[in-house]
Design a protein around this nucleic acid. Sequence first.
DNA 1: TCAAAAGTGTTGAGTTTACACCCATGC
DNA 2: GCATGGGTGTAAACTCAACACTTTTGA
Lengths: 229, 229
Amino acid sequence: MEPNQQIRIAVDAIVFGYSSQKLYILFIKQKYGEYKDKWVLPGGFVKNDEPLIQAVHRELQEEAGIKVNYLEQLYTFGDDINRDKRFRVISVAYMALVDATHLNLTADTDASAADWFDITSMPVLGYDHEIIVQQAIERLKNKLTYQPIGFDLLPDEFLFSDLENLYMSILNKEIDRRNFRKKLLSFGFIEETDRVSSHKSGRPAKYYRFNVEKYTALQKKGFHFDLMI
Amino acid sequence: MEPNQQIRIAVDAIVFGYSSQKLYILFIKQKYGEYKDKWVLPGGFVKNDEPLIQAVHRELQEEAGIKVNYLEQLYTFGDDINRDKRFRVISVAYMALVDATHLNLTADTDASAADWFDITSMPVLGYDHEIIVQQAIERLKNKLTYQPIGFDLLPDEFLFSDLENLYMSILNKEIDRRNFRKKLLSFGFIEETDRVSSHKSGRPAKYYRFNVEKYTALQKKGFHFDLMI
DNA sequence: TCAAAAGTGTTGAGTTTACACCCATGC
DNA sequence: GCATGGGTGTAAACTCAACACTTTTGA
């Protein structure tokens, strides 16, 4: 009953970032092998004594110097037995969200090796990563409507217009400002701060904050986030 | 860059069956090893050139002689590096649904080795399978409300009361017969047949059928199954 | 004729959608 | 004072939730 398996296990991360009304994904330029100079998802092989989730964090740290706000297992790709030509690889894909402060990669990284791409203008990807990315985008869109993960793509304090634009640009839908605001405020976990924005023109806007404690408290009482946009 | 991995990959299946208002899960009695004589989920190691999904089908066939109506990848358990004492194992869990005609296991199986357990009276399980099972039950409950998978737990032709009882018993909720019927029929993918039930007492009931084609057609037009019970 | 389960409509409450004008600031 | 984006309320349409009696059969 001892298996003689020759299957490698890897993790891949689809890291989403949001900035100026565009959704970005992080890619890494391969340095070696069949896909040299192609862009691929950050990720790599799991170490023998390393939990999967830790492997994801490690790879993101090594390859892009990034710490994420949100990380969730997406799907395990193991049906195409030839996705890597060298040997059979099964890949566990994770979806991660970062806020815009991480969209600068200069700090910890070899700048040429990692970059953000607007999802409307992505490069050709190596392996089967195009498929993985498409699935991740779908998952993100779905999840935005039934879990409050949009806040993980924004800074701690944000304008209501930021939140609204985030939803509109990711879901490609028009949203009525009044109804959107009414609904989100009615939930009771979005709090006004006393900071006020001052940009070039227009009336200054208040900053708001997502109160995680209030959200989890509500959740325990049976509350179910749903934007049904 | 060649990894020297010593990680095994396995699949496990949580197979749900439904009969006389109870939800059942299929377990296998281990014959060897640390968990000898303990009940565990059907599953096993993936072969080198075998797609994951095929491994699941194979194991279900070998261990219980079962073909499923529905199969979906659930989650990959790979964070607890000691879940199997012999070596590190990462397990990809799948959720499967069968209809009640499969609840007899005598045909293809060593009867002592596989059995169905009502989820309210499950045995002690080996490995970390208790956790996996709990997650699967949660997923099933959720999914019942937003995907029409309840039909995969019923025979092709079923009574409306069967469907209603299935939802009530799995979700532990009272359902108003009139509202439930009204809503499901309004979707337009449940069809009346001309078969009529005849049981001991009470007015005979019509059999109904779930029309998959109509459902997928609606789905493409943007329809979204939702029972919000 | 009685017991048992199937079948059927209506009303009030709550939620969602559509919609337009005033406000505060910078230039 | 005007351009720019922020902030606000109301009414109609729709959906959901609650509720009880009639029908058909077998015994």
